[in-house]
Design a protein around this nucleic acid. Structure first.
Lengths: 286, 286
DNA sequence: TTGTATGCGTTATCAA
DNA sequence: TTGATAACGCATACAA
């Protein structure tokens, strides 16, 4: 203890890792850090990683299959003890890699299409069904649309399932998760006579809102919007956007906690954790 | 090559690291991932880290001295080959740790108070002076305010220096980098008769804008706003916010590139890189 | 060029 | 309980 002070000794993590075959490092695969949804998940992940003394190795996947694969590969070569996967549409390729890799994986705010991995999510079907229900009161089905990712991911399917459960005759539109894509879509929505939308991604929702407002349509009088991630964004617009809320920080935190259990071979009672969502009424609905 | 395929052999990064005393891992200290300014820097960092085959180990510092210290400590124990520091106000503590640690450090979008480390930034004095100049045309000095972080960091000093260079009789207000803090400050600004503000942080700027608008003040007619980070946020508000633009992705990228040079002991010609900024006129100024 | 031993800083094993 | 020693998987230096 004396010497440890005097020499400012610090254990060498690599030697430790080599000998114990544990790195106390987890990989975090994330599509895009500038997407606030994932950023907030990441904060939750980081927070509990700290508590359990894990470092987190970042791997931005851009949501494309190749980068995703490479991200997972470098994580593996780094001998991470586990990985948190985020992404709306995991490629078949990475799914295969993951199942065959033997490192524990948990999905955070992302749905595993085959249900092979533990995951933490909200009940998307229920959430989208409820959101659709709010709009049903004011408009006929055919005037209400779901704006979803162009991918045909399991997540998209769940959202659609919930949406159609409440609105069997609702419409669907595709737009990538970008502000400008939403803005561009606004034109089509208006010309198609759509009166209300549920939007899968916040940035897209803001884009739609701005297009609609820029074209002098009154919100919520003549057009209503419900967003479904409830990031900081939707509180910053005017009118502010009503939204399904998700406990994003907690989703990340619980996912990471789950992973720590897996990494220490503890039993996991329920591998598919569902956290509660809510609905916040703001100014784009009434 | 045959065997490498058959056995799906992957080199063990730890053994490699132990033997070569290189980890091909860099640490990234970031105050808050949900701050889009840092998120965009991080994307730039990650992009060139990939190119040079470095992994990046994430360490969220919350901008507080203790967490910052711990972040740096765990990075060191992980034997990272270098670290990218981000943060508006590095504590004395971490500065000391860094100088005494012998691992290469570069500051990205963050100013080193003592100029001891290589860094990548814009010319804050110039940028804030120019921004202030735009407002000077329309209002008298005493009606124009700089909204800055409450910390008295070197960065804040530079901003102030630029601001006062153009507006010797300008005012200053403090607000933490949060939407709500900006919103709250809005009240004081209006009651003090302020007519135009330059805001150091985007989220704060949006808060001010919304307060002002919510209280039926016309923007830009009766109140003008200039933001200075130009994150996605400022394009999403209505009116959209005029802003000093920063090449955030590039700042991160160049910082990481610089770090790779340092890590391979190459000479670095200019350790304090200044990247060009611009000004984008949007709807909160005229 | 190809092969062989030694060291990297720990953990883990086994003996004392 | 303590102490010595063999892995851990790769680099590196040296010998063949």
């Amino acid at each position: 203890m004396q010497a440890i002070k005097e020499l400012d000794y610090r254990p060498n993590a690599m030697a430790k890792g080599l000998a114990s075959s544990k790195t106390t490092m987890v990989g975090m695969i994330v599509p895009d850090l500038t997407n606030l949804y994932y950023a907030e998940l990441a904060q939750g992940i980081d927070a509990v990683a700290k508590i359990y003394n894990y470092s987190v190795s970042l791997a931005v996947s851009d949501g494309n299959a190749k980068a995703e694969r490479e991200a997972f590969d470098t994580l593996r070569s780094k001998q991470v003890d586990g990985v948190i996967y985020m992404g709306s549409n995991p490629s078949d390729e990475i799914m295969q890699l993951m199942v065959s890799s033997s490192v524990p994986v948990v999905f955070a705010g992302s749905v595993d299409p085959e249900g092979k991995f533990p995951s933490v999510n909200i009940d998307y079907i229920q959430a989208f069904s409820e959101a659709a229900g709010k709009l049903k009161e004011n408009f006929e089905d055919s005037k209400i649309a779901l704006v979803e990712d162009p991918d045909n991911s399991k997540l998209s399917q769940l959202r659609r399932q919930g949406f159609f459960k409440a609105l069997p005759n609702g419409k669907t539109y595709q737009a990538e998760d970008e502000y400008q894509m939403g803005y561009n879509l606004g034109r089509r929505l208006l010309s198609d006579g759509i009166k209300a939308v549920i939007v899968a991604e916040d940035a897209t929702a803001v884009g739609i809102l701005n297009y609609v407002r820029d074209n002098h349509v009154e919100v919520p009088e003549d057009f209503q919007i419900i967003s479904t991630s409830d990031t900081k964004l939707v509180k910053m617009t005017r009118p502010s956007i009503s939204s399904v809320t998700q406990p994003k920080f907690d989703i990340g935190a619980v996912a990471m906690r789950l992973l720590t259990k897996l990494m220490s071979n503890q039993e996991v009672s329920d591998p598919a954790v569902i956290l509660p969502h809510e609905f916040v009424l703001r100014e784009t609905t009434k």
